[in-house]
Design a protein around this nucleic acid. Structure first.
Lengths: 347, 347
DNA sequence: CTCATCCTCGCAATCGATTGCACGAAGGCT
DNA sequence: AGCCTTCGTGCAATCGATTGCGAGGATGAG
């Protein structure tokens, strides 16, 4: 049988005071406005009865649910769980819970989920989805709901964002390849409707300019998804085009893994003949041979930072105290998939 | 500025009816008790004003939050995200949201999180944590909160559970090894304080009996964690003991991966000299060489099933309609890490 | 034409906690 | 000694939606 909950009223009856007094006695802030003796008597009764506050009722009155929404494309994508743990690590100790939703990178699903979260009265939203434009989240933010985005920014909005310094990551990686003697460097770009795909392509172009390397559009292959199949297809396209290259900088680890496999299919060895680099440094990467040289992103701290900024927003901190832009450092991890450029094996 | 929400009262004022009428008109069940003309007028006004029901308020009154709690050890463990998607796939279309918490397999955290979920008034809990005993969840269930466990069962309770047919998986795998001619088969067992570790060891012993193979305690190494390091350590211990074996059945993929690496360190080739098998069929496994022969668990359907049973519980279905035990089939996936037993290479 | 019945809708209580306001007592001040 | 302040507590409204009950009108039967 479902036990009936202990409410303030029960404690009030038990201790012979008014429920409002009980409420105050149990609120750490208000508690000091109550005679210590009464307060501790109430506290004792509450403990004895096993009182647990009803957050729903409190939420109705205060309009705060101590719940945040977290929107990600897909929880099964290994880069997101660490982000979630990072978020949780700052929010949970403060009593917040999070509702996690998967957008599957679908526009309509995304905006529907924003509504779902708002209906549930979340106090704020961390938005790590990657569609390049979505009015629903901007609208929510404009209406006063605290929102922070992760890995991307919403143009023309006052939404704080946290991004990783992907430009620097791509640039460092390109420098690494150049320093190894590579000149003909292909880029396996990600889907251009995802911000990460687009950003990294732009970063590649800029980095080439910075490093005085020629940017060759004919050495860019664009994947339709961030997966191994598309990585393999990208390599096939590149090889079929007859262009020569000694290195492939991929927009993501999975593309890189697919690329290495496909190169092997064509009898081309990585790293001896062609160097390949990834992006993200996803888990288990060091179990796959050759161990991939990649750009490490600090997912956990990205989550922490996003949560911290969201907290400021929810606490109503002064606007000037809230960082609109946070760029987190990345680092390149050199492993076995890159090697000095040898002689070109293909014409 | 924070927009003020549209409430039933606003719609009532707009349409000139009482708020209770509006409530009924908007409730698909109650709607038929309202004149169609009035109902559609209310509906129109609701749409025009952009009304969104306040679930908090409704939850307070009805004592249903349309929220479920999901407890897992750690979201960064790749086997859990698919389970969550499975749960979501049945719950989300019905309007449920889920609050996911990570227990980190710590007893006190686990029971604290049960309280957190209850305070938030979840309508039910899916408990996929793996500690072998925890009174808090049993207490919650006894007090009437719908609870379903996944991958494990709580003894002496009326809590429905969904488990994978791990016994069959282990047995099939052992049969596979036997059929390949292996006789000296080691077992790399998981942590014995986790139900999966314990269950699979027991299953290994039973399977040996079933298949008329000798169960040799001296060929069992026990890992302290489910990770590659412990897999490597297990192999080191086994090798150090001087026993001979031609195959290692591991309680989990990561142990198997660590085992293969460690064997290689010792100059022992898998699968030519020693066959190694895993358990779980985690993602990216087919990218790692040799591709691991393992037991595939249908995580997604496990999640779906758990959610479905929980729904029955929450709907108050008749007890006899609710399956107390669900055993999901598993399948073995034969890849490259197993091969016919050759001559023993070690004495 | 009258009375019973049914249907539609309004009234008001309710869920549990929070909080502005007010009241009464006690203490300090002149 | 009287007045004002301060402190502790109670009162009651409130958050927004749900729902049992009952009133009133419409409808049908006799």
């Amino acid at each position: 049988m479902r036990q009936k909950r202990i409410t303030l009223k029960d404690i009030a009856r038990e201790t012979g005071v008014h429920v409002s007094t009980v409420s105050r006695a149990l609120d750490p802030v208000e508690r000091k406005s109550i005679t210590e003796e009464v307060a501790s008597r109430i506290q004792a009764a509450a403990d004895a009865l096993g009182y647990r506050p009803n957050r729903i009722a409190a939420g109705l009155r205060t309009n705060r649910t101590m719940t945040v929404g977290v929107m990600i494309p897909d929880i099964t994508n290994v880069i997101f769980p660490p982000i979630l743990r990072g978020i949780e690590s700052v929010l949970e100790p403060l009593g917040y819970a999070s509702i996690i939703v998967n957008t599957d990178s679908e526009r309509d699903r995304e905006s529907r989920l924003v509504d779902v979260l708002r209906d549930r009265g979340v106090d704020g939203i961390i938005h790590a989805a990657v569609l390049r434009s979505d009015p629903s989240i901007a609208r929510a933010a404009a209406e006063g709901l605290p929102v922070v985005t992760l890995n991307r920014m919403v143009e023309n909005s006052q939404i704080p964002y946290i991004i990783n310094d992907e430009d620097a990551g791509i640039c460092e990686m390109l420098r690494h390849l150049r320093d190894l003697g590579h000149r003909d460097i292909a880029h396996l770009a990600g889907p251009q409707d995802l911000s990460t795909g687009q950003l990294r392509l732009a970063a590649f172009r800029n980095a080439a300019a910075t490093l005085s390397l020629e940017f060759r559009p004919d050495l860019v292959a664009t994947a339709r998804r961030f997966d191994e199949q598309e990585g393999a297809r990208g390599i096939r396209d590149l090889l079929a085009s007859g262009r020569t290259f000694t290195a492939v900088l991929c927009a993501n680890d999975r593309l890189a893994l697919g690329a290495i496999d496909e190169l092997r299919e064509h009898g081309i060895d990585c790293p001896r003949e062609v160097s390949v680099t990834g992006f993200n440094d996803m888990p288990f990467l060091d179990l796959i041979r050759p161990r991939l040289t990649t750009v490490r992103i600090l997912q956990h701290s990205a989550g922490q930072t996003a949560a911290t900024v969201l907290l400021q927003l929810m606490n109503g901190d002064k606007a000037e105290d809230i960082p609109m832009e946070t760029i987190l450092p990345v680092e390149i991890v050199v492993r076995e998939s890159t090697a000095p450029a040898g002689s070109l094996v293909r014409s």
